[in-house]
Nucleic acid binder design. Sequence first.
DNA 1: CGACTTTGACCAGCGC
DNA 2: GCGCTGGTCAAAGTCG
Length: 215
Amino acid sequence: LNLPFPSHGLFKSTISGYGCRSKPAPALAPGKTMKKQKRARQPRFAFMTKTEIDHLEDGYRWRKYGQKAVKNSPFPRSYYRCTNNKCTVKKRVERCSDDPSVVITTYEGQHCHHTVTFPRGAGAATLASQMAFSAHHHHLMYNDLPALHSPTTQNPLFSVPAMSSSLLQPLHCNRQELQLASYTTQASSISSPGSVPAVDKGLLDDMVPPAMRHG
DNA sequence: CGACTTTGACCAGCGC
DNA sequence: GCGCTGGTCAAAGTCG
């Protein structure tokens, strides 16, 4: 699934000092690793989901590789990597410090494969995956969060003609980069087997790619 | 036993 | 230069 995430002017990539690391260098002492190296930055996008579930199932398998307490937030941030060894996509999951019911998921990179499976059936594509796809489809996600420290973030950033206003609500957190939009969803609608996602069919049809809908 | 999570340590970038 | 912070590693632990 090679989704291009165009770097919109507003979201001009400004990732600097972003952590990178290579394999341990042989010359290093045991237990010591070369932590970071310059690496081509990956496209990033994030979305907020109002849910009690920390780790939303999005059709991919993720392995957690770290968790850190972050400044200005009482909630830890979790780091996940796609378990596909050819896929370098990562995601960070944290809760909004202002609204603990809001989970902020930041994806970095692009999957080089399709979703591994939808355990609850292809028709039960999770809302998270819909969000992720929609991010690309409507170009509405906030790419490269650090770039959002722009004065323009004082106002709502997005108009989303394809989505109902009941699904997309402005959200105001004390973190600048979070003064964006959020999807309001029901956690139960995400995780309940066989339940209908909190989107109407027309919207779902618009959000979920054919490859995710078959079956 | 393999896949996954937890957790402390390590390291680079950045601001002062 | 130093301390803070974020991102990652990797060993140990947990689970099915």
